[in-house]
Design a protein around this nucleic acid. Structure first.
Lengths: 147, 147
DNA sequence: AATATACATAACGACACCTTTATGAAAGAA
DNA sequence: TTCTTTCATAAAGGTGTCGTTATGTATATT
């Protein structure tokens, strides 16, 4: 097992015993992978509306086949976007809003530039200057708080 | 041209004349595709720290080859995450924070369940009830406002 | 002019994604 | 038990991702 080409392997997420698990970089990529597909976005959109739904009902509603639904549900679970619960032979799924908020929060922290290399331009282009971190750019601070 | 298997084609984003372009579903998937890779997340992380950087400097810093950097930069541009500016033979890149905020905002709107099918459980599982939309779940309303 | 630098692109290989079709397994209904 | 429903999974094919190496192109330098 040598991980030759492509860093797309996923080394089985660490589970820290009772500590709110920090979102590391690889997990963040896996999280966004879950969202990087129109079909899965539709599923997420649907689950955002109904809170919980039977798997095959969602598949029916979106007009996708059952194995296809199963496939995408698998990726959504891996991404930490969706939780499932079995009830007899049926499976119900819902958004994992906690995990979603954690990952989204980790991403915005990344965007905020947390980490040492503060205002150090790596060879800044001409006619461009480092601004003090005060009045951000405009759209740079706004987001509906409805996670 | 028939789009047989896999809905991963991208039909050349509509450009509406002077109107703040709404983020449609396919674009949102493309946006998240840009974030669905550790290397690209590292690039984004770096650009969040330095605001603008020379392409090959970022590549050097992250220890990735030049063609690899060029490849990922291409996807980052396609995703609307990064803007580039040519200066002679050099290329500088920076985050497209406007586009990033737009897409992130579109996603949170999707999570909020915008769209008709309000509190209609599609065959709700037993021992589970629809809550009124008042005091949300807890982590469900919080996000660092540092986009 | 010739050379060096910065970036883009093509070619290739390995693998992952995504779809359909076909089967399998488990739980409920007849 | 037998049939049906619900979901998971395997197989197979098409396509995209993602990495390296090699080559091309444009700009700066000598």
């Amino acid at each position: 097992m040598n991980r030759v080409a492509g860093d797309r392997s996923r080394p089985t997420r660490q589970i820290l015993p009772l500590a709110l698990t920090p979102v590391v970089e690889g997990d963040l990529a896996t999280y966004f992978e879950g969202l990087a597909n129109p079909t899965r976005l539709h599923i997420v959109e649907r689950l955002a509306q109904v809170k919980e739904a039977r798997v095959s009902d969602v598949a029916m509603l979106l007009g996708i086949s059952q194995p296809r639904m199963s496939w995408h549900l698998r990726l959504l679970r891996r991404a930490g976007l969706v939780l499932t619960r079995r009830e007899g032979r049926e499976v119900f799924c819902r958004l994992d809003r906690t995990s979603i908020a954690e990952n989204l929060s980790a991403f915005t922290a990344l965007l905020a530039g947390d980490g040492q290399p503060g205002p150090a331009e790596s060879r800044l282009g001409p006619a461009e200057t480092v601004n003090p971190p005060s009045p951000r750019h405009g759209v740079e601070r706004s987001l509906p708080e409805v996670i």
